[in-house]
Design a protein around this nucleic acid. Structure first.
Lengths: 255, 255
DNA sequence: TTCCGTCCCTTTGTCCGACAAAGTTAGAGC
DNA sequence: GCTCTAACTTTGTCGGACAAAGGGACGGAA
C-alpha cells in the first residue's frame, strides 16, 4: 500500500509545448531581455535535443503569444508583447462571444471616464502636443468619415496614454477596437456627427490642459452619449457585435 | 511607364500563416461554429495542399490564440476563446511592461466599482447563490491565506459575472490576476486581514441582494483600500509587478 | 583606402517519408 | 447483446532534403 508520497506527478506534455514554456520562462523571469536574440532554429535543436519541426512548432506558439518575433532578416528575438496585438485577440474573443453594443457602451463609459481622469491629472506637455496634433488632423478630415473615425480612435488611445496608466490603456483597448468601425458608420449617417465629434475632442484637450476634471468627465460622457444616439439611429444597442467588425480588426492588425 | 494601377500588392506570407488565417476566417465569420470539428491534420493537408508540418505550424498558432483546441481524444475543434487564458496573456504582458502596483490599483478601483454597479443592478438569483456559496467557503478557510486568496479572486470574478457585462468581465481580469498573489501575502502578514476580507464580501453580497448601489460602491472601495493598506506594509505601490507573479499565473493556466 | 559586386554559407520555409504511442473502429467469440 | 481483441487512424516526433533569401567574406575597381 502507498506510504508517503514518494513520487510527484510527472509533467507530461508534448515536446513542442515544453520548448515554448522553457523559452517563455526565460523571457518572463528576465533572463532573456526584450530585444535579445533567441538563436537560430538549429541552435535550439542542439540545446533542446529535439527535432527542428518540434522546435518550429514551439516557436509558432511563442510568436502568436507575442513573446518573440522575427526581425527584418527573420532572426528570432524576444520582444515586449504589443498591446494592440493582444487587444485584437480580445476583440476577436468578444465578437465570438457575441457581446452586445450595450455591454460595449457601458464598459467604455467606465473606462474612458477613468482614462480622462488620469489624463487630466497627469498628462505631460508631450501628451498634449500629440493630442493637439491629432485635433488638427481631425479638423482637416472632418468631412471624410473613414479618416475621421481613424482619428477618433487614435485620439482616445492618446488620452489613455496621457493617463500614464498602462493597465487602463490595455483594458480599454479591446472595447475601443470594436467601437471604431461604428464611428465611421455614424459619422456617415449623421450630418452633425463630424463637427460635434471634433468639438468634443477640443473640449477634452482643453479640460486636460486646464486640469479640469469635471469638464473632462462631462465631455467624455457627452461624447459617448453622442455615439450612442448616433448608433441607435442605425441599430439597437442590444444587437450583438457583428462579425463584419473582425475584418476591420484584422486589417488593422496586418497594417 | 506605369499607367493605371494594374496590379494589386500580392499577399506574401508563409504558408502556415495562410493556413491559420484561412481557418480563423471561417471561425470568426461563423461558418465554423464553436464546437465544430476542424478535421484531422490529414484532411487539412488534402484541403490546403501543403505538407503536414506546415499544417501543424498553422494549428499551433490557432491553438495558442484559443480559437481551436483538442478534445480528450486530441481531435481538433473550434472553440470560444477562454477569457482566463486570454487574460493570462495580458497579465504576462503587463508584467513584462513592468507596470506598477499603483497603476494596477487605480485601474482596479475603476473596474471593480463598475462591476459591482452592474451586479447591484442586474445580478440574478443564480449569481447570488454562487456568491453565497463562495462566501461560505471563504469563511471555512479564513485562516488559510492561500485558500482564502483563491476564494477572494473567485469572488470578484463572480461579481463581474453578475454584472452581466462580458466586456467588463474581460477588462478587469488581467489586473485581477496580478492582484491575486499579493492577497495571499497580505492576509498572511496582517492578522485582521482574513476576517476583514470576508466581512467585506458579506457586505458586498448584501448590497447586491438589496440592490443598494451606494453600499456596493462603498464596500468595494473599502475592500480595495484595505488591500492597499496591507500592501503598503510590505512594499511600495510604485514597485513594478514582480516576475514571480507569473509563476502563479502559469500555474493557474495549467489547472 | 574605400566602395562595390560576386560567391559562398547560413537560415528559414517547405516538403517527403517514417515510426511509436494512443485512440478508434470493426469484427470475432462468448 | 456484450466483451475482448485486432486492425486502422491520428497525433507527436524524428531524420533528411531542397529552394529561396539574407549575410558575410573576399577580391577587384575607383
Amino acid at each position: 500500500m502507498p506510504v508517503s508520497p514518494l513520487f510527484r506527478p510527472i509533467d507530461v506534455a508534448p515536446a513542442y509545448q515544453k520548448v515554448a514554456e522553457a523559452i517563455e520562462r526565460e523571457i518572463v523571469n528576465g533572463r532573456i531581455k526584450p530585444g535579445d536574440p533567441i538563436g537560430t532554429e538549429h541552435d535550439l535543436v542542439r540545446q533542446f535535443g529535439v527535432n527542428r519541426s518540434t522546435i518550429r512548432e514551439g516557436i509558432r506558439v511563442l510568436e502568436e503569444g507575442g513573446l518573440i518575433s522575427r526581425d527584418s532578416s527573420r532572426r528570432l528575438h524576444a520582444c515586449l508583447p504589443r498591446y494592440s496585438k493582444l487587444a485584437s485577440r480580445l476583440s476577436r474573443a468578444l465578437v465570438l462571444h457575441e457581446v452586445t453594443f450595450r455591454e460595449l457602451y457601458e464598459a467604455s463609459m467606465t473606462l474612458e471616464v477613468a482614462s480622462i481622469e488620469g489624463a487630466v491629472e497627469r498628462a505631460t506637455e508631450a501628451n498634449l502636443a500629440e493630442l493637439d496634433d491629432n485635433l488638427a488632423r481631425s479638423e482637416a478630415v472632418v468631412s471624410d468619415p473613414a479618416a475621421l473615425a481613424e482619428c477618433d480612435a487614435e485620439f482616445h488611445v492618446l488620452v489613455a496614454k496621457a493617463s500614464q496608466n498602462r493597465v487602463l490603456q490595455l483594458a480599454r483597448e479591446p472595447a475601443a477596437q470594436l467601437f471604431y468601425p461604428t464611428t465611421e458608420m455614424i459619422v456617415t449617417g449623421v450630418t452633425e456627427g463630424g463637427p460635434r465629434l471634433v468639438a468634443a475632442h477640443r473640449h477634452l484637450i482643453d479640460a486636460i490642459r486646464r486640469h479640469d476634471r469635471e469638464a473632462g468627465v462631462l465631455w467624455t460622457r457627452r461624447h459617448l452619449q453622442d455615439w450612442r444616439r448616433g448608433f441607435e439611429k442605425i441599430a439597437s444597442l442590444d444587437r450583438s457585435v457583428e462579425h463584419m467588425y473582425m475584418e476591420h480588426a484584422q486589417a488593422a492588425r496586418h497594417r
